[in-house]
Design a binder for these strands. Structure first.
Lengths: 240, 240
DNA sequence: ACCCGACCTTGATCAAGATCAATTTTGCCC
DNA sequence: GGGCAAAATTGATCTTGATCAAGGTCGGGT
């Protein structure tokens, strides 16, 4: 068996797999045993309760955070306090702007989050040596760029109704990528204020749009964050 | 002399330098002579007049375009025709979504543009072999991601007046990065419609904001696209 | 179960920017 | 320079979403 290319789900070496799964989620396929050992010596596992800041905007950054569990919210703030959420990250994404010593934005735990914190120098050395890890990070950057540009269309050109529908569709498809049929049930990983800050709207407008989707029988809401999408097709039709 | 790391501006081998400067702007520092030869055999130099499409949205992509001269406009369009510009690229950026066979957006010449077209397979092979080229492309992707996220704040949270001021400031600083003092003179590389599509506004609103900046003595406009910024500080103060 | 504060919804009003409709200006071709 | 189409400006009006202001609901703690 080729250990350097083993997989979390099919690994046949439990001890190594355990270390991998617990401490280095998503880097797993990219590292050989020596590299895993190096990584293990320099990393710490950290738990962040919902709302806690992982990295502050314009602060000096000494480490990257590999997400093991939970959702991380990336945001930027203007001097007068206006805020815009510029992205969400999920396991096994790496949090932190590669090759920059100062963070261009705030990273905050949207849900309870578990990360594996790797010192800058350690990770950057691994990147230089390991093609698979490099490729994974390149692909993350390109995927995030695609997502950011998609979202620019939503922010710049869609109506409030289309923005809210687009977000619900994004979350529905993201949280359960291979579900089939017209229905989806999930819990929103964010408050109304977060949603407003993601969509460039106010909480009142978001709330009104939710009410309208409910009245039109496209979604059902119980307990504020628990959403039931009743017709994915109708939701899609409202995305512009 | 280390040919593999030679520079456009300091190259001491004229023939190679000429090929490099004319055909592979910006890849120059990243390639050794063998690689340059490989590249030269597979690439073509192409001129695009302003307005011509380099790559269409959702079309199959067979090549990347290295910008030699001019400005390229990246845009996305909704079914009903609403358009959003999601980025601008300048020499020596590489146009085209790496590792994707289908383009996620339209790339169009904003000014007259000269590119060097490299087949997908050729460039991807070079990326695997050449660390410096890889690094350059990784840094382009990360820089574009930073720019996209900055723009998301502008699109989602700024007023029309702040948006227009932000764009003028962006262009002023981009076209002449090391100018000093309070004044800047330049030609806009885009029409009012393009500006509106970049800012998520209508042409009428853009025009009114230009008139207001003119009335307030912050800019002077002659001949539609010729802009004179009279006070960079006052412009900056209006960016939010 | 009850309380309390945070979060959410709903309504009334307001204002920023879109839309509709003329002009005016510019660049361009002859 | 005159003519013309495309691009830009300006004005009047309308619409969408922001703002202001109450209430209502949820969830955690005692």
């Amino acid at each position: 068996m080729d250990i350097s290319r083993h997989d979390i789900h099919s690994c046949e070496i439990p001890s190594l797999c355990k270390a991998c799964e617990v401490r280095h989620k998503g880097m797993c396929g990219a590292l050989n045993p020596d590299e895993l050992t190096l990584l293990s010596r320099h990393t710490r596992q950290i738990e962040h309760p919902s709302g806690e800041e992982l990295v502050g905007e314009s602060t000096h950054v000494e480490a990257y955070d590999n997400i093991m569990r939970g959702v991380v919210k990336l945001s930027k703030t203007l001097e007068d306090g206006r805020q815009q959420i510029v992205g969400l990250q999920f396991a096994p994404d790496l949090v932190g702007r590669l090759y920059a010593s100062e963070s261009p934005m705030t990273a905050e735990a949207a849900s309870d989050v578990e990360v594996c914190r790797v010192p800058r120098a350690t990770l950057e050395r691994l990147i230089d040596r390991n093609p698979a890890l490099r490729k994974r990070l390149m692909e993350q950057a390109l995927r995030e760029l695609d997502e950011a540009r998609d979202w620019m269309v939503t922010l710049g050109r869609k109506t409030a109704a289309e923005k809210v529908a687009s977000l619900l569709l994004l979350i529905a498809t993201h949280l359960d990528p291979d579900a089939t049929g017209e229905r989806r049930i999930f819990d929103l990983p964010m408050s109304r204020l977060d949603i407003a800050d993601y969509l460039g709207l106010t909480i009142e407008t978001v709330s009104r749009q939710f009410s309208r989707l409910k009245k039109d029988g496209i979604i059902a809401i119980t307990a504020n964050r628990h959403i039931e999408v009743l017709s994915l097709a109708k939701l899609q039709a409202r995305c512009g």
